[in-house]
Structure formats: C-alpha cells, structure tokens
C-alpha cells in the first residue's frame, strides 16, 4: 500500500470538511442538545436554563414510565428471541440450498426491507383486530362467541415487530452461517456424529456470534421502534418510544421527552458494548 496509506493530510480534511460539518451539526450537536435538555426544567417546549435531575427522577419513579420501560425490554427480548428462532432455519436453508432459485429466495427474504414498517404492520392490524381475520375465522368456525381482544396488546406489538425486523436477523445469520464450511458438517459426520450432534457441537457453536448479533440487532431496533407499538398497541401498552412521541409532540414536555430519549441512547450504547464483548470472545482466535 505504498503511497496510499498516508495521503496528504491537508487535502484529506478539505474533502472531509463538508461531510463532517453535516454530521456534526445535524447529528452530534442535536444529541448533545438533547442530553442537556434532559437535565433542564421545561415549561411546554421552552426550556428553562436551570440544572435539575427531576426529569430522570420522574421517569425512574413514575409507574407509567416504569411500566413502559419494562414493556419495552419485554418487547425487545421477545422480538430478539422470536427473530433469531425464525431466522435461523431460513438463513441455514438459504446458505446451504443448491436450488437454482437461491438468488431469488434470498432477495425475497430481504424484500420486506423495501416496505415501510407501516405496510408491514397494517397487515397485522387486519389480522388481529376485533373484527379481523383471526376473530372472523374463529367465530365462523363457532369456536368463540365473543371476539378475542388480541390487540392492543404487548403480544401484538412483539409479533408485529418480529415480523418487521425478521430480515435483519436473516441477514446477520446468513453472514455467520455462510462462513461455516459445509465440509465441517461432513467432517463431523464422518467422525461419527449424528446430524443432531453435528448441529449441537459444530453448527450451533460456530453460529453463536451470528445468533447473538441477530438478537442484539433486533432487540435494539425493537426498543426504539415507534410505528408498530403505536399501531398495534394502545394507551395501556405504551413503550418508551410511544411515550417519547407523546411527551414531545402532544404534551410538549420536552425535558421529560429528552430524558426518555437519553434512556434509549444509554440502552443502545450498552447493547453495542455487550455485542462487541460477546462477539469478540468468539472471533479473537
């Protein structure tokens, strides 16, 4: 890499000036503003220049906030677990199949990413609401008299989000699984391991970083998702994200809204740290 590695420093920063300016003004500064706002008092959307921890005290003690945070964690865990569980067989199939449709099947499995999460959630509303597909079917079969209250509920939020985020888990797991040579499975079998033991001793341990990665990715997107909880949940099933929207846009209490957002930032950074910890143990061979 002679001549490429160094480059001229002055020229480099000239080229980087514009992207850096954009990222600093529209990403770094707003986040700093948000963090500082979370330590201020506010009256409506006007902040009062006075340091306070009240906002955090509020959100850590209020039942509404604690309920929402707990629900958000449950949603994250449920979505993460459901997604790696569903994505694993699909990713394994897509990596190992020799079908001539392989390319198409992979494209199809990722295609939902092209649809806004609203499109993907709308269908679940149609399926789960009081007069939705499930209730109609069950009533038609005479299995229930009254429609089931399938939504709004935390379960509906988990299913909707798991559905929306599945492609992320599939991508992560495919990357992990495609790094496992099929010869390793063959080798295990020639050494006397049954298919099940091959899976447990070879495939599973080697795909563990992918499983963790997929779980963490889905978890972290799920805890900050707004649209799905807003559509499939209700006032009784608030998550942190829907609360942030309520406080910012409806109640205009920006200080509390900012403190809630700061909690999401903290959670995201913690997850990143955990993921890199768990991931690096496996890759640092």
């Amino acid at each position: 890499m002679i001549g490429i590695g160094e480059g001229r420093s002055g020229l480099r920063w000239l080229v980087l000036a514009l992207p850096c300016a954009v990222l600093i003004s529209f990403f770094a500064v707003p986040n700093v503003l948000l963090l500082s706002a979370s330590f201020m008092r506010s009256e409506a959307s006007v902040l009062i220049d006075e340091f306070t921890l009240d906002n955090y005290q509020d959100i850590l003690s209020g039942a509404l906030f604690r309920g929402a945070m707990l629900r958000t964690v449950i949603v994250g865990l449920g979505v993460g677990a459901l997604d790696v569980l569903i994505a694993f067989p699909l990713a394994y199939f897509l990596v190992r199949t020799q079908s001539r449709w392989k390319g198409l099947l992979i494209a199809l499995s990722l295609a939902p990413l092209l649809a806004s999460v609203i499109v993907r959630t709308y269908g679940w509303y149609v399926i789960l609401n009081r007069s939705g597909a499930i209730n109609q079917t069950l009533q038609g079969l005479g299995m229930i008299d009254q429609p089931l209250a399938l939504m709004p509920s935390t379960g509906a939020i988990i299913i909707g989000l798991a559905h929306a985020l599945l492609p992320y888990a599939v991508l992560t797991l495919m990357t992990a699984l495609s790094a496992i040579s099929p010869n390793l499975e063959l080798a295990a079998m020639t050494l006397g391991a049954s298919r099940w033991r091959t899976f447990v001793h070879v495939v599973l341990p080697l795909s563990l970083p992918g499983l963790i990665g997929g779980f963490v990715l889905c978890f972290s997107i799920a805890i900050s998702a707004y649209a799905t909880p807003a559509i499939l949940g209700g006032p009784a099933t608030q998550t942190v994200a829907t609360l942030i929207y309520t406080f910012m846009m409806n109640l205009l209490d920006w200080a509390v809204g900012s403190a809630l957002a700061a909690v999401l930032i903290a959670a995201s950074l913690l997850l990143l740290y955990l993921a890199s910890k768990l991931g690096s143990q496996r890759t640092a061979l």
Binding site: S181, L184, L186, A187, A188, M189, T190, G192, A193, S194
Partner: peptide, 17 residues
C-alpha cells in the same frame, strides 16, 4: 449416513473445527 460408516476422511481444505 456418513456417521454410521466408520470411515476417516481428510478433506482438501482440512475442515478443521
């Protein structure tokens, strides 16, 4: 299946775990 045949295979890419 391979695991019931009592064989030893050395693969081209070794296939070490």
């Amino acid at each position: 299946p391979p695991f019931a045949r009592d064989i030893g295979v050395v693969f081209q890419d070794y296939a070490l775990f």
